[in-house]
Structure formats: structure tokens, C-alpha cells
Simulated scan of single mutants.
Amino acid sequence: MATKAKPGLRERKKQQTRLAISQVATRMFIERGFDHVTIAEVAEAAEVSVNTIFNYFSTKEELFFDRGEEGVEALCRIIKERREGESALDALHRVFRQVVKGDSGPLRVQNMKPFIATIEASPALRARARLLLEQSEARLAQTLIEETGLQPDDPTARSVAAMVMGVWWMLIQDLQARVLRDEPDSKFRPALLRLGERGFELLRSGIGDYCLRKKSPPPPAK
């Protein structure tokens, strides 16, 4: 398997600048509220020009959701990397369990609360979150079309993507509400897992083994 080339020095510096701007902006947005901070104030605090900020971020909302593209691609990546013998739903269900049970690392809910609270307090950020959800659904449908080899206008892929995103969004909203209520880990994990298991059970009754990755045939005997 080919290894991904490491970014050059210039690209690394650009990534560092982008991250530095984002960290300053996020701190200001959380402390003062998204709608009460201007791009000019972020630029001054980050010691860059306003034009520099717009070189890295097209909108103020993108500056807050600086990892929005990763979120849009998250479910697609899980499906593309599904194991042999796994369907799209199998892979999503497996990763959901790993995350909620802590098998893939802890859910740092203490870090989530200020971020979530900032979104809830801003109509602009709530609208942006909804847009990211719509983009995620569109990308998921496209990935399913690519992985199944069906036609671009295939209605099954769009239907499956809409169903999956409906359950996924429900789980995100439930987690966010529990984080804002300061529910202890011992309470929110079992509750979220129970909700997710029921959601995936219902999805499986409708989707089944759609987008199954077949197992590779064994090598011929010598």
C-alpha cells in the first residue's frame, strides 16, 4: 500500500497558521459568544490581517467549525474503510459502539460543553451546523453510489443516506443535550448506547446488507 507523502515545509507552516488562528478565534467565541466577536477582533488577537484570515477561512462560521470538512467526510471514511464481509451499516454500527463504549478513546465531554453551548447560543452557528448535516448526507449518498457502482441518480443511495443521517443526527443531539445537562459518564453512555442500538436495529430492518464488501476469494492452492 502506498504511503501518503508528508506535507512540505510551506504546507506545514500554512497548517500551523490556520490552527493558530482557529485556536484564538475559538477561545474568543466561547468566552464572549460567537455573535459578539468580529473578524477584525480575531485578526488583532491572532496578530494577523483580516485578509490573512480570509485566506484560510471563507466565512466566520467556517472559522468556528474549522474541522467541519472532517465531520462531513467522517461517515464516508468509515464506509470506505469497512472490513471484508461488512456492509455500510455494519461498519457504522461497529464504530458507534467503539466510540460510546470508549474502545476508540474517551469521549472528552468536559471539552465539548463550551463548544456546544456556544453553538446553541448562536442562530448563525445552528444554521451552519444544519448545513454541515445536509452536506454530510449528500456526501454519504455519493460515497454509497461510488462503493456500489450504481448510477449517479440511484434513489437507493439517497434514501439510505437520509435514513442513516436521521439516526446519526438524533444521536448527536441526544449526546449534546446530555453534555449540557452535565450528566455523568456512568449515565450518558448507557443511555446513548441504548438509543443507538435501537436506531441501528430499525435501520437494519430497512437497509439490511446494502453496500456489502464481499470477502476476497482465498488464493488458489499451489
Rank of each mutant, 00 (worst) to 15 (best):
K80P: 02
V109E: 12
V164C: 07
A40K: 13
R97Q: 13
A40T: 14
M112V: 02
A129M: 11
F54S: 00
E134V: 12
R10V: 13
L9P: 10
G105E: 02
L19Y: 08
K214W: 12
A20G: 08
F57G: 03
R126M: 09
R27W: 01
E70Y: 08
P152F: 03
R82A: 00
P123L: 02
N51H: 12
E61D: 03
V100N: 06
Y56D: 00
R108L: 14
I79S: 09
E183V: 10
I78Q: 06
E81K: 14
L171V: 06
N111G: 15
L131Y: 13
K14W: 05
I145A: 07
H36Y: 11
S22T: 10
V24Q: 01
M165E: 09
E73Y: 13
T148N: 06
D103A: 12
R198Y: 15
P152G: 05
L131G: 11
T118R: 01
F34G: 00
M28A: 03
V95Q: 12
G102L: 07
V37H: 03
P123T: 01
E69R: 08
A129T: 07
S122F: 13
C76N: 09
S205R: 15
S205K: 15
E120D: 13
L175G: 08
N51C: 06
S159C: 11
Q16S: 07
A177K: 15
F188G: 11
Y210Q: 07
E69K: 08
R82V: 00
V48A: 08
